Simulated scan of single mutants.
Amino acid sequence: MIRVVLADDEAIVRVGVRAVLSAAPDVEVVAEADSGRSAVDAVLAHRPDVAVLDIRMPGLDGLDAAVEIRRAGPDTGTLILTTFADDAYISRALGEGAGGFVLKTGDPHEIIAGVRAVAGGAAYLSPLVAKRVVDHLSGHGPRLREGDRISGLTVREREVLGLVGAGLSNAEIAARLHVVEGTVKVYVSTILRELDVRNRVQAAIVAYETGLIPRS
């Protein structure tokens, strides 16, 4: 069972998101919070697998809460939930190491998919957000040649990076490559270090930009 802390300052939103998550047989909302600070407290008290955090909350916002959660409860992944597909928010979320970014206005199933992905150690971006990220990066210059960013990776590491970019968890990558999950964890750690990125979301962006993942 994936244990979730849900944080949003609007009670009606929490009711709706909780209903969506409760429809998934493998997800349980163990606590709710109405601010970033209370979300951090709830994570420390319940040690959930995932914290679903609204960006705009009074006092400590969702992104600042994600930073504190990563420091205080590193085993808890963070999924950012917002109404706004604002480039500044997206950039900040990715820079702060959030595990995923989902729009409230998107398909409700995206929230479930995001929670499952983050709980499994994978990255998740709503399709609209993923497109904005790729389009934004593309607008700042030509697409990177493969050797510009991933020349230090082995063939196998590039294969793993491509699967990370496709949204697969460590367990799914291990099954695909017929190796043990611990080996995949080593590959992913090496990839993050070699690319000088904080998390799998940023690594996934590199996978897109270097051609390891085709753009639709």
Rank of each mutant, 00 (worst) to 15 (best):
A117K: 05
P108I: 08
L60V: 10
G100S: 15
I69G: 01
V115H: 04
D64H: 13
T105S: 15
R116I: 10
A113S: 15
R92Y: 02
A113K: 08
D107W: 12
I69Y: 01
F84I: 07
E110R: 10
L94V: 11
P108V: 06
E68G: 09
E96P: 05
L94G: 00
D75G: 10
I112C: 00
E96T: 09
I80L: 13
P108H: 11
G77C: 09
D75S: 09
I80C: 05
D86A: 07
A88R: 03
T78K: 10
A66T: 13
T76K: 07
I111T: 05
I90F: 03
H109E: 13
T76L: 06
Y89L: 00
Y89D: 02
D64R: 13
G97L: 14
T78N: 11
T78Y: 04
A93W: 02
L94P: 02
G95V: 08
A117N: 14
L103K: 02
P58L: 14
P108A: 10
P58Q: 15
D61R: 06
F101G: 04
G95C: 10
V67G: 08
G114E: 12
G97N: 05
K104R: 13
I90V: 02
A117L: 14
A85V: 12
I90R: 00
G97H: 01
V115Y: 05
L81C: 01
K104V: 12
A113D: 15
V102I: 13
G77K: 04
G97E: 01
E68Y: 03
E96G: 06
V67T: 11
R70H: 06
E96N: 08
T82I: 00
T83G: 14
A66M: 10
R92C: 00
Y89T: 00
A65R: 02
D107F: 13
K104I: 13
D107A: 15
I112Q: 03
E68T: 07
R92N: 00
I90G: 01
I111F: 01
T78A: 14
L79M: 12
G114K: 08
A113H: 08
A85H: 12
R116Q: 09
G73A: 12
A113P: 01
V102Q: 09
I80Q: 04
G62R: 04
I111Y: 02
G100A: 13
